[in-house]
């Protein structure tokens, strides 16, 4: 039962991203054309509220359900990997119209063809693991 809560939050995530059309190829295309505020509104409001919440969590030293302080592990310092990796990700994101979360959600929506995109993304993850040490980080 300790995993049931993650299943419920996941279901909620799938519903929210489908109903807000954030999983839609059309919405991602529109976002990169700067022709609507919709996706910027979603990401922007999530970040503003998220930032306020994290500030509050840190300020009030709020604890998680197991009683340990909530801490967010900072990402390692680098420029190359984030900028280069991010650019590669972005090239793919605008092609598929879906980042990893939406891939799972679209398949749930009965769009079985997206399993091909997900499998290819898993292969991409695998190949990264193979060549990781040869890449600048």
């Amino acid at each position: 039962m300790k995993y049931a809560k993650f299943l419920l939050v996941g279901i909620f995530f799938g519903v929210v991203l489908t109903k807000s059309e954030a999983v839609s190829w059309y919405r991602i295309f529109e976002m990169f054309q700067f022709q609507s505020f919709h996706m910027y509104g979603i990401l922007g409001s999530a970040v503003v509220i998220g930032a306020l919440a994290i500030k509050m969590i840190k300020g009030l030293q709020i604890k998680d359900i197991s009683g340990s302080p909530i801490s967010i592990t900072p990402k390692a310092k680098s420029i190359t990997r984030y900028l280069l990796g991010g650019t590669i990700f972005g090239l793919g994101w605008a092609l598929t119209g879906a980042c990893p979360g939406p891939l799972y959600i679209l398949i749930g929506n009965g769009l079985w063809i997206v399993t091909v995109v997900l499998l290819s993304a898993i292969i991409g993850t695998f190949v990264y693991g193979l060549v990781k040490n040869k890449l600048p980080h």
């Binding site: 990402k75 390692a76 990997r81 984030y82 280069l84 990796g85 991010g86 650019t87 590669i88 990700f89 972005g90 090239l91 793919g92 994101w93 092609l95 598929t96 879906a98 980042c99 990893p100 979360g101 891939l103 063809i113 091909v116 995109v117 997900l118 499998l119 290819s120 993304a121 898993i122 292969i123 991409g124 993850t125 695998f126 190949v127 990264y128 693991g129 890449l135």
Partner: peptide, 18 residues
């Protein structure tokens, strides 16, 4: 579909997140 998916998976891991 195929190249796009590959770049999403490769790029996300290289960048350490999506």
């Amino acid at each position: 579909m195929i190249v796009g998916g590959f770049l999403v998976g490769f790029g996300a891991r290289y960048a350490g997140g999506c």
